[in-house]
């Protein structure tokens, strides 16, 4: 099995985001592998352990994104492909075309895993576009996965506690959600070994991609508006409850 895992290098979710200019942010914060991508790497490693084959970690990102590929390798991925970009934001249409091009040139995917979304841009679409470009089916937000009789079987949460069981023809693109597995922590010996693993380098600008038909451009970043000073309500539990209900009905008009 040849399994590709597409990763994104993103600011750690606990990092403070300081906005710079209209739409930039201070990129000196700590960056990590997109948390959902860890489930993707783990699942790929699990399958290769059962079925044999190799796991190839691919990313489109700035130079520093190489550390996310190294992390995947320390988890157990066999090799890496880094498509260097000069910005943190690359449009999903461009990213998916770039991924398609290098994966196509590199091998024959039996499966492609990604995280269900990136936690920085929260776009949730690159994997669908990649699947379409490779003419494969895509499924997202997957919480259980297995291969049975040459088909992929996956489960996904669809809201209100409901779950869908899906059967998907292979090869396919799978977006991993929390709960799919428990991503491993790399062992020291694996971290050392990963330093010797190979990363193929490409440059996004040199791939000769066509200008896509659509795009989305980030115009502005702002801090999420904070609330004003909270109105503190005092008294006995009963008094507090009475005042709260009155305020929610009359002032806030939400009851």
């Amino acid at each position: 099995m040849q399994i590709y895992v597409c990763l994104k290098h993103v600011p750690d979710t606990v990092a403070m985001i300081n906005i710079v200019g209209d739409a930039g942010f201070d990129e000196s914060v700590k960056f990590v592998m997109n948390p959902y991508d860890e489930y993707a790497v783990e699942e790929a490693l699990k399958i290769v352990k059962q079925e044999g084959g190799e796991v190839i970690a691919v990313t489109v990102g700035k130079e520093a994104a190489a550390s996310t590929i190294r992390y995947a390798m320390a988890m157990g991925a066999h090799r890496g492909i880094h498509i260097q970009a000069d910005a943190q934001w690359v449009d999903s249409m461009v990213t998916s075309q770039a991924l398609k091009k290098v994966i196509h040139a590199d091998g024959t995917p039996d499966l492609i895993f990604t995280g269900k979304q990136s936690v920085d841009g929260e776009g949730m679409q690159t994997h669908y576009r990649l699947a379409a470009a490779l003419d494969m089916p895509a499924v997202n937000e997957v919480t259980t996965f297995s291969i049975q009789e040459g088909k992929a079987v996956a489960e996904r949460e669809v809201g209100g506690g409901e779950r869908e069981m899906l059967e998907i023809s292979l090869p396919c693109v799978v977006g991993a959600s929390k709960g799919l597995n428990e991503p491993r922590y790399p062992k020291m010996t694996e971290i050392i070994k990963s330093k010797k693993k190979k990363i193929d380098q490409f440059n996004l600008a040199d791939l000769g991609l066509e200008t896509p038909a659509a795009s989305s451009e980030l115009l502005k970043l702002e801090e999420m508006p904070e609330r004003g000073q909270a109105k503190m309500i005092g008294g006995s539990p009963k008094e507090m409850a009475e005042e709260l209900v009155q305020r929610l009905r009359e002032d806030a008009k939400v009851l």
């Binding site: 600011p11 979710t13 985001i17 906005i19 739409a23 942010f25 936690v119 920085d120 841009g121 929260e122 659509a214 795009s215 989305s216 451009e217 980030l218 115009l219 502005k220 970043l221 702002e222 801090e223 999420m224 508006p225």
Partner: peptide
């Protein structure tokens, strides 16, 4: 954007 830490305006 950024797990609810910022609000982004996008032009499609």
């Amino acid at each position: 954007h950024f797990s609810g830490k910022t609000l982004a305006t996008l032009k499609l």
